[in-house]
Design a protein around this nucleic acid. Structure first.
Lengths: 209, 209
DNA sequence: TAGATTGTTAATCGATTAACAATC
DNA sequence: TAGATTGTTAATCGATTAACAATC
């Protein structure tokens, strides 16, 4: 698998290709043209994106859907199960836990953590809620816990983030509307509901985006 | 307010400036350099972004924080209250309703809709849940409902989307992992939790993004 | 072989950054 | 006035698209 400098945009599109391929017959072949049309991209872009990582198609024929799906999964590292811990088991955290997406195999919620003593020790969706303080011990006793989701109140977010970094977490999905300080080598994605609403609000009043 | 062709990237950054300004003393002035540092952007970018919409700074001094905040709010149209309806009052929908962000004035959840007869007629967070079928009547009887949030099951998403479009909704925030077909003139933002996790998973295994 | 479609190189487009005259 | 910092123009960088030789 060749690897130059990859743009985050390319990786984002890869996740979209994956989604699209899931709804197609795995036995079939699809051309870059065909895939592009479904996605609203250009055929050149589809080919360019994929060519960053190797040669997945057959000239004159297109891409085998099963194979392409599996190849993209490998690129993203979601062909295996990746463990995640979730910190902040409030309404939003609980809601995420029960999202059907999480029944898939590529991610596994390996631990739940909260600060609230009333919650600690109880179970939710069959998973035990642990004390925030145990995070470091938890991640060091199990292997391969590199990701975390943060759904705590605004005030607690940076503190929790620091604990996670100290515990060796390498990737954070942050739902809290706060810019978290993280050291080099840790990646973060922010999901900002309110920001997205503001963007939509801008565009709804003009025609084109 | 001048207006050429604005890139979505600019609007996204505008929402981030807003967030950042909220934590600063409104009486103070901040330079593009100072704001850039907080955001992790360049000073040139800050000035360029803002200059798309007018002149908000004072040469030799910088930007007045209260004024800049208020000016960006005006650009985004969030200096007034914008009505939203929420469709799909499941766990995720309920969780979003209780997010502290929604106590702000710029967005107001004007209606809740669901298909489940057990839910219809009951109240949540002091708001009545209505039958999905009433959406069109609801939006046409009240004025100025142009936005919707979709948090329904995957299967129902496109159908709900079509109803919303028919009811005159112009902007949709979609939490369902499905690419929704919308006509020209309607804008959509997708929040794809699972996709973001996949992206993070890719980056966590390499150093730099 | 002829037709189709890939992978890749070159051309274009758009977004970011640098530089600086304008001006508070 | 001198120093600081804007708003804007020009230069650079990166991402998308077009074109086409390679090849199934």
């Amino acid at each position: 698998m060749k690897q130059e400098k990859i743009s985050p945009r390319v990786i984002e599109r890869l996740t979209k290709y994956l989604r699209c391929l899931e709804n197609l017959n795995p036995e079939d072949y699809i051309s870059s043209e065909g895939l592009a049309e479904k996605m609203g991209f250009t055929a050149a872009q589809v080919r360019k994106d994929l060519s960053n990582f190797g040669e997945f198609g057959i000239r004159g024929k297109g891409y085998n859907i099963r194979k392409l799906h599996s190849d993209i999964e490998k690129i993203l590292g979601v062909n295996k199960t990746n463990n995640i811990i979730l910190v902040g088991v409030g309404r939003l955290g609980t809601a995420l836990l029960s999202e059907p997406e999480f029944t898939k195999e590529s991610f596994n919620i390996a631990g739940l953590f909260d600060k609230d003593e009333k919650k600690i020790g109880t179970e939710i969706m069959g998973k035990k809620i642990r004390d925030l303080k145990e995070i470091e011990h938890f991640t060091s006793s199990k292997e391969d816990i590199a990701m975390a989701i943060i759904t705590v109140p605004k005030m607690a977010a940076q503190e929790v983030c620091d604990v996670l970094v100290k515990a060796g977490i390498k990737a954070i999905l942050n739902f809290v509307p706060v810019k978290l300080d993280i050291p080099e080598g840790v990646v973060i994605e922010n999901i900002d509901l309110y920001g997205k609403l503001q963007e939509l609000n801008y565009w709804k009043e003009r025609k084109l985006k």
